[in-house]
Design a protein around this nucleic acid. Sequence first.
DNA 1: TATAATTCCTATGAATTTGGTAGGAATAAA
DNA 2: TTTATTCCTACCAAATTCATAGGAATTATA
Lengths: 134, 134
Amino acid sequence: MIVSAKGRYALRVMIALAARENSEPVPLKELSAEEEIPHKFLEQIMTELAKAGLVESARGKNGGYLLTRPPEECTAADILRVTESTLAAAECADGGDCPRAGTCPTLPMWRALDEAMDDFLKKYTLADLVSQRV
Amino acid sequence: MIVSAKGRYALRVMIALAARENSEPVPLKELSAEEEIPHKFLEQIMTELAKAGLVESARGKNGGYLLTRPPEECTAADILRVTESTLAAAECADGGDCPRAGTCPTLPMWRALDEAMDDFLKKYTLADLVSQRV
DNA sequence: TATAATTCCTATGAATTTGGTAGGAATAAA
DNA sequence: TTTATTCCTACCAAATTCATAGGAATTATA
């Protein structure tokens, strides 16, 4: 029960982008150096975030990445849903096909935990995280 | 971010024990068959639960396992803390030695998430889970 | 047009974790 | 003595995680 390095990296990078006030694309090289995240690994992460529509990329010279929405409108839940393949508390709560599902005494708890985590993560916007309020 | 099979098995077995009204030791064989959990794997899990003091074992013929406390006094948090090596939301919140800890904008959130999960899991006792209230 | 700086794409791989299996020793009841 | 059980230790296959590597495509600018 843990958030992967990928998820933690993603969140940090998104915060770093949110912290910039200008709207010029920030190159991966800069983000990677600043946040001390391996360049090539971050590249993969940014691709996922871009596909999910959380950032947009500008290719070629002077290219880089930008947030697609204001920091107030992007939450930790939005980001972690992209990077964490299984944000579910337990597989069984995640559309799993467990044959016990009908009678399992634990399933309702896993589902409730899922919802509780999601609610929690939704409370944190990038704006909150940048300014360390919350 | 997921609870492992080990943790799910542990919880189910503890519920199965709690569901029994008598106080005779329940052999692993019976638990394993009833819950459809591989015998040898469950053996390892029971050893951990016993070491943690959540169950006690009786060796030899007619031996087996028993809860050490009434089901009202054992929570999902107690059990998962034993089986999930990392109940922490993120490594960094788990006594990690991250050099960024001092200034990391995400650390407080991970710690808060940890606490929220723990609070959530503490609400579910074995008695609750057996009777499907909650 | 050439060059430099960037993202995009695809493949590979080492280390770790997970989910078991295996065999036998120790213990205790009948 | 037999039988049923837990205890202990070692091993292992598959999946996942955390990257690394190399080059193609794209774009600004000198």
